[in-house]
């Protein structure tokens, strides 16, 4: 069994993990995507977006997978998750309080209900 700490840390095995996610064993959770009328199974030791890719689902747009580009912006309608730092250009403090997140930066801690496709390009005025 791979622990979360090991999974986060495959690139620097000798170091302590820096992310704040608690050390929990790998589990699988059901993720319902209401706007796509679809669902997938996500692992607790991978980001929600990578979990979606591993389950061969295409219900969330895939961009950088690093919290920078905003393409995977979703809203979590129900369920628990942990999150890492996300670009403030795409998730304001108020949005974060309203459970808007980047799927590549959250880790499921229960079954989730989400709404995807919240990314928009902001043209210059």
């Amino acid at each position: 069994m791979t622990t979360t700490a090991q999974a986060f840390n495959t690139r620097k095995e000798q170091q302590e993990p820096r992310c704040s996610s608690p050390d929990v064993s790998e589990q699988s959770y059901l993720v319902q995507v209401v706007n796509r009328d679809s669902w997938f199974t996500a692992r607790s030791d991978k980001s929600l977006l990578v979990g979606m890719e591993l389950d061969a689902s295409q219900t969330i747009a895939v961009g950088c997978r690093g919290g920078g580009c905003g393409m995977c912006k979703i809203r979590v309608l129900a369920g628990k998750y942990d999150s890492k730092r996300m670009s403030r250009a795409h998730i304001s403090e108020q949005e974060q309080a309203e459970d808007y997140v980047l799927a590549c930066r959250i880790y499921p801690r229960s079954d989730l209900v989400i709404e995807s496709d919240h990314f928009t390009v902001k043209p210059e005025l």
Binding site: G66, G67, G68, S87
Partner: peptide
């Protein structure tokens, strides 16, 4: 490829 903050 992308860096861990999403910069390509």
């Amino acid at each position: 490829f992308f860096d861990p903050s999403g910069n390509r």
